[in-house]
Amino acid sequence: MPDPVNRDAIAVRASSLSKSFCMHLQGGLELPVVEGASFEVRAGECVVLGGPSGAGKSSILKMLYGNYAASSGEILIRHGDAMVDLAAASPRLVLAIRRETLGYVSQFLRTVPRVAAVDVVAEPLVARGIDAGTARERAGLTLERLNLPQRLWQLPPATFSGGEQQRVNIARGFITDHPVLLLDEPTASLDAANRRVVIEMIAEKKAQGVAQIGIFHDEEVREAVADRIIDVRGFAPAHAA
């Protein structure tokens, strides 16, 4: 966590970021989805990517996480004391950035079978060297806040309802103190009460100086959390718009 928070510090800077899929199974069809995306996000800021479905919001977020390879452009991210280009980083560097700098809350939960919910949530802390007991305790507190019944904590989340899985996922994403957080529709299947908890958590992260970039379809949430909205239609490929 940057301390003291320097709200002018750039946490993420994307420049001329483009993504095009080459579909080899369809005779090498080129499918451009993003072109020339450039934006900056500062510490403590929550930026929402806006635009209709299929406009490339999700692709941008995945490129920012290193999950999609950028076709061209740069993604500078403040990793420790340096700005590192994630788009050009080696896999090992990407993993180090994810471990220490960059968190991700996705819509969908992908977990190993048989692992208890509380351990799924605690895992990012354990990966950063926090002892298992403390990590589990903090995981419990986060799950409690998200109103996940305690009787579920020791069960593997694969059997949970969509909303329950989502909350496990949110807890896992928010539990660390990563200075940059990517939020991929974290409130999609939540009830009003839990949505409010997530809004609170995002606000807390902002206060701590965490830079957040998110996709929110829910207007209420978007209004509540967004400092700025970047309309990704501006990054639509010329002929696809």
Partner: peptide, 9 residues
Amino acid sequence: GLTDRVLDD
């Protein structure tokens, strides 16, 4: 490459 990158993209 990175496992999730290779599998997702």
